[in-house]
Design a protein around this nucleic acid. Structure first.
Lengths: 348, 348
DNA sequence: CTGTTAGCGCTTTCAT
DNA sequence: ATGAAAGCGCTAACAG
């Protein structure tokens, strides 16, 4: 970005032409009430004559000590984030609060390369909101190093940084119990375990290797639910998806359903994934829930349409809570609520 | 946003503690190659000791004259924008280019109240990208007043501001011809006409009253297509939706289909709307395309699934083109291409 | 209501 | 390789 063409017109020049002090000119823009109508008019006329573009926001933010902008750190390629209805709901919540406070919202895309650190450090924002990421994400360090207010959504939790999210383990155990009720061969369709996002199918997965805390907690909850149903974790098939979308889940589910010991219950980690599971099941001629019980997560509108048993949490509210926190407002005990929505895709 | 706690640590303090000049400290961060390893080490040690958060991006951007951020102006409540797959595709394109150039992307939500102007003026961004809006949107004036590079997507076209988009009139005429083929009572499901976004159903709509140029151009194209088919515009029912989504289109279509002279062909303005039309038609027991021909716009993935005849345009590419332009790169003759995708929802 | 002074924290010269 | 000076453009703080 080059500084376009002729030299920038400054407030000082406007003031000179208007025959007033710089402060009067400044007040004309920043605190119009502090200026007489005549002075104001002269300043505005001079500004028009000079084609003054208004006070430079960079200078302003330096002087004021605030940028009036919040930064949202999104891992993964942004394309994915926007395709994820959960992420979109979250962003909507953030945006609404920003709008109400006269703040802008800067999206900081993280690409897993070296300049992620500088991308965060250099961002002219007053505070950060970090969308769920992995324990070992270097961005977390950068964010904390800025000393600016920060909130993490989902996880990981980091000393000195506020965390907004639900108790994923409890919620997973709770919905897992429904998913695995009367099942012999339960399976899980999981979100990515690690930042490399490789997809694979595995039995008796080592949960500790998952570096996304949200995923880890949900797996743990599912394991507990399986145990409650008398099924050892070693017997549970886990299909790990590299992306959180319909297609990937459908693909892996198709594989699951054609394997010798095809599952009769699948707990997914998002409604998107669950929809993929349902598609695969339908294509394979499975009856829901008799042949296959399915559960989702998030309760997006499509979940109701498909009778999907799921966990309801308001990502939008969580986005709002994050924004409030990043704005330095003490949230009056923000409760991160979730609830179990029982529909027709499970046996109970 | 308050300046948190104790006084901010500055580069000068770091330099003093390290026993070097401010410039050496500055170089350590900005141009490490210009500094000896020893000096660098001492600066870094001092910085660590002082818990220096790194150079202040606000001061940096003032001095450098660039913020390394692009602003995207989105009309409507952001919630709507994110729910619109077209807008999301567009944003993805913008984001990808920003990322590649080490730029951030600031979303500037416009709410139609008085501070929209200041929201734009105050935005610390190097350039603006304006998502389709109405002729009379005051934001356009603000954007141009900043003198910073700007691009408008869709419309309106504004002297001195680059425009990226397709020829909506030609495209509409082209797909309208398919939609209205062999039809007796063609109708249009339209996007909003004006910024107040009222929805209504009207026959022989006065196209000139539409202040969204994109909508206006498409209506004009549909009128031409109707005329080509020998149907006067005065006979064409137009259902104007307040929002560009499935539900609204479904609701209005249901009304259309229960009216005495229910249409036998509907040209919509987005695939979202067309999906709503299809739902309403299905609910009313209409056969597609025999009882009702339907066309969409955008060619989102769902369009293919539903056999929807539609206009394909890459909103993502258009987002990329806008970003390039806003970054001041001369786009080597960006061609805004569209094509007609003929599927099974039309009679021809 | 208006003006003066004093920087915000950094980096671009241009020396050395 | 390092440093001194000079501001980027604006506004808080305090007079008048």
């Amino acid at each position: 970005m080059k500084s376009g063409g002729p030299r920038r017109v400054t407030l000082a020049q406007v003031a000179r032409l208007a025959g007033v002090s710089v402060m009067t000119a400044s007040y004309t823009y920043g605190r119009p009430d502090r200026v007489s109508p005549q002075a104001r008019a002269r300043v505005l006329r001079a500004a028009a004559e000079l084609d003054y573009p208004g006070p430079d926001p960079r200078a302003r933010s330096l002087r004021r000590g605030s940028t009036l902008t919040l930064g949202v750190v999104m891992g993964e390629r942004l394309s994915y984030a926007f395709e994820d209805p959960g992420a979109v709901a979250f962003l909507t919540g953030v945006a609404d609060v920003c709008t109400d406070h006269g703040y802008g919202m800067t999206i900081l895309p993280i690409t897993d390369d070296a300049d992620d650190v500088s991308r965060v450090t250099d961002a002219a924002v007053d505070g950060f909101i970090v969308w769920t990421t992995a324990d070992d994400d270097p961005v977390l360090t950068s964010v904390r190093a800025t000393k600016r207010p920060a909130v993490i959504h989902g996880g990981p939790s980091l000393a000195g940084v506020q965390l907004v999210g639900i108790d994923n383990r409890s919620a997973a155990r709770s919905i897992g119990t429904l998913a695995f009720a009367d099942a012999r061969r339960p399976a899980v369709v999981s979100q990515p375990l690690t930042r490399d996002r490789v997809s694979r199918i595995e039995r008796g997965l080592d949960i500790a290797q998952a570096s996304f805390p949200v995923t880890r907690d949900r797996l743990t909850g599912y394991r507990e639910a399986a145990a409650d149903a008398g099924i050892p974790w070693g017997d549970v098939l886990v299909a790990v998806c590299g992306r959180n979308d319909v297609g990937e889940a459908q693909r892996l589910t198709t594989q699951l359903l054609t394997s010798p010991d095809r599952p009769d219950a699948i707990a997914a980690m998002s409604d998107q994934q669950a929809l993929g599971v349902l598609r695969a099941a339908r294509a394979a001629g499975y009856g829901i829930p008799d042949d296959l019980a399915v559960t989702g997560w998030d309760d997006v509108p499509a979940a109701a349409e498909h009778g999907l048993t799921t966990i309801a949490q308001s990502l939008r509210d969580q986005g709002m809570a994050c924004a409030h926190a990043a704005l330095g407002e003490q949230p009056e005990e923000f409760s991160t609520a979730w609830s179990l929505i029982r529909r027709t895709s499970t046996r109970r």
